[in-house]
Amino acid sequence: MCVKQVPDSWAEKKLNPADNTLDRDAADAVVNELDEYAVEEALQIQERLGGPDECQVTVLTVGPDKAIESVRKGLQMGAGDGVHVVDDAIHGSDALATSAILAAAIERLAPDLVLMGSESTDARMSVVPAMVAERTGRPQLTFAGKVDIADGTVTIQRVTDYGYDVVEAPLPALVSVVEKVNEPRYPSFKGIMAAKKKPVETLTLADLGVESGVVGLSGAWSAVQEFAARPPRAAGTVVTDEGDGGAKAADFLSAQKFI
């Protein structure tokens, strides 16, 4: 179960001019919304399989000190324990480096199932799950709108442009979920209190055997050269419908050669 802490998508985001990385201090941080769906799915699978004695849910995050908050959120929802990979060298890591760290942590934890969100609301790349699957050699069952587990086989509905594909693979496997998969629960008061006592293991890159040179800004395989605010769009024409709004819209479309 991987969660990522991201800046609140409502907040304004900016790049840090010093090193062209996302200025994470400039926005309030929240748990990546899609990862709450992954936590929820993990908890529902746990319930179906007979509860915490049969199936453990561990929340894993890679990120700075305050990323621990996203682990806590998962624990409040009902996960049993957490793992937080934190290391100064991680700052500025790109998707490839992040996926390498996650893969190393997953190899160490060796779960039967890895559940992830299908996209983080800040990076919006939707590439980390595929990269982790590639690195760990686990079957890739991504963009799941529905997840079923039976007899050591995981079956998903993979959402596609035309509908969905039914995909199956033996465990151990990796699944990423889309938001229609479930409705995440809110932590209960009891859950919030219980989370305070749940264990969170802190790991460094050295613990995972990941060399610090391959992550962070210096290890990135792509680099931002420059960025600039886009010039604002020129103000458009807005008319009020007085029985002729559709016709005026058609005039605009004709003038723009759309019809």
Partner: peptide
């Protein structure tokens, strides 16, 4: 409306049918 090149303030249930009719007629 901050984003638009052209906007109509009105009820879509009356504006859209009229627009559709105009588009069909002009095409």
């Amino acid at each position: 409306f901050d984003l638009v090149d052209f906007g109509v303030v009105g009820d879509l249930h009356t504006v859209l049918p009229q627009l559709t009719e105009e588009v069909t007629r002009r095409k």
